[in-house]
C-alpha cells in the first residue's frame, strides 16, 4: 500500500537516517555534559544562585539527552515507515 510517492519516501529515508545519526550522537554528548551544547539547555536563567544553576544544568543535560534519544527513536519509526514505502514504490515500478 503506497501512501507516499517515491520522492517523498526517499526524502523520508534520507532525513531519518541523518536524524538517527545526529540525534543519537547529540544525546550522547548531552549525557556526557558537553560544554558546546550548554547554550541550548531548558529552564536556565541568569538570576539563579550558582548551586541552583549547576543543579538545573545537570537536570537539563539529562533531560535533553533523553529527548534527543526520543527524537532518534521517532526517526527510527519514520525510517521504517518511509523505507517500507520506498520498497513498495520500487517494487510496484518494477512490476510495471
Amino acid at each position: 500500500m503506497a501512501i507516499c510517492g517515491p520522492k517523498l519516501s526517499l526524502c523520508g529515508v534520507i532525513l531519518s537516517v541523518w536524524g538517527i545519526i545526529q540525534l543519537s550522537f547529540m544525546g550522547i554528548f548531552y549525557y556526557f555534559h558537553s560544554v558546546a551544547l550548554a547554550e541550548d539547555l531548558p529552564g536556565l536563567n541568569k538570576e539563579m544562585s550558582p548551586e541552583e544553576f549547576y543543579l538545573e544544568v545537570d537536570k537539563g543535560y539529562m533531560q535533553n539527552a533523553y529527548n534527543c534519544w526520543i527524537a532518534a527513536c521517532l526517526y527510527i519509526i519514520t525510517l521504517a515507515f518511509s523505507g517500507h514505502q520506498f520498497w513498495v514504490n520500487s517494487r510496484s515500478s518494477l512490476r510495471v
Binding site: D40, P42, G43, Q63, N64, Y66, N67, A71
Partner: peptide, 9 residues
Amino acid sequence: LIVQGFQGG
C-alpha cells in the same frame, strides 16, 4: 532543545 520535559522529544 529548550522545551522542558519529555514533550521536548
